[in-house]
């Protein structure tokens, strides 16, 4: 067979394109079973719910039980600086006409906080619990190159640990520092709102652990849910609203210093 170069190139191109398309198709059929498209097993129907979370910063006492409960519940490594939820402390000190803001969250607040600024110098102080906002318009989902991070029908943002390639683009993309790299799994990781619990009708571990009810979780589709009850009567804010991420963790009593 004597092929001219042109024909040779043509055939070559066809083989390459065909092979690539073929593998891609088989691959996508094989992986179509990934979690992103299936409701959890059992009688839970994710179309019936749309979850939301509310934090009343005025109630938080900075005990850190939530952050501790989370690490226990979700096997988050205790000896690494990684957190699915944490508590921040803000202390505003007067310095003449200027205000000085000190923020800290030692070990995510798990062991509580110590007083290292004399009380009389502090003008105002408060705690702010933080958690993944399960954004309605999540940049972490947008930037994931393989679709391992996804939004569920019931409004939760999850990571498929069997699919994540560990590029950590999502960690860069989350404006809230809610994600971390799980060295054991070799993947990105973050809060799931205890998806394994809420799909069985339970509350997330942090909500259950909070002794003062600063954390409230519920179904936004249910007008009677505790979250909706508060959303109906309080003035609400979210973190970094100007970034357009549309967080679904709502804050009551959010100070302007909190980012």
């Amino acid at each position: 067979m004597n092929l001219s170069r042109r024909e040779f190139a043509k055939i070559g191109c066809r083989i390459v394109i065909g092979a690539t398309a073929g593998t891609a198709m088989i691959e996508s059929i094989a992986t179509n079973g990934i979690a992103a498209e299936n409701s959890p097993k059992g009688d839970y129907n994710w179309k019936e719910h749309y979850w939301g979370y509310l934090i009343d910063t005025r109630k938080c006492i900075g005990c850190g039980r939530c952050a501790n409960a989370c690490k226990l519940e979700n096997n988050v490594p205790f000896d690494e600086p990684v957190y699915r939820t944490w508590v921040e402390r803000y202390r505003i000190v007067n310095k003449g006409r200027e205000e000085n803001v000190t923020i800290d969250s030692p070990n995510g607040g798990i062991n509580g906080f110590t007083d290292d600024i004399p009380a009389e110098q502090i003008k105002k102080a408060f705690y702010v619990p933080k958690i993944c906002n399960h954004c309605e318009n999540p940049p972490c989902v947008q930037v994931c190159p393989v679709g391992a991070t996804y939004s569920t029908e019931d409004g939760v943002v999850l990571v498929d640990y069997n699919y994540c390639i560990g590029c950590r683009y999502c960690i860069q993309g989350c404006p809230y520092g809610a994600r971390y790299f799980n060295t054991e799994k070799g993947t990105a990781d973050k809060c799931t709102w205890c998806y394994h619990r809420i799909t069985k009708g339970l509350q997330p571990a942090c909500v259950e652990a909070c002794p003062v009810g600063a954390r409230v979780f519920g179904d936004l589709k249910d007008p009677e849910s505790p979250v909706n009850k508060i959303l109906d009567k309080e003035r609400i804010n979210v973190l970094k609203p100007d970034l357009g991420t549309k967080p679904k963790v709502y804050y009551v009593g959010l100070d302007r210093e909190v980012r």
Binding site: E27, P145, G147, Y163, C164, G166, G186
Partner: peptide
Amino acid sequence: HLGHPERGIEIMFTPH
């Protein structure tokens, strides 16, 4: 640098 270098090729098969 990937956490799972063996899955890196997924970026070709199932690009998001």
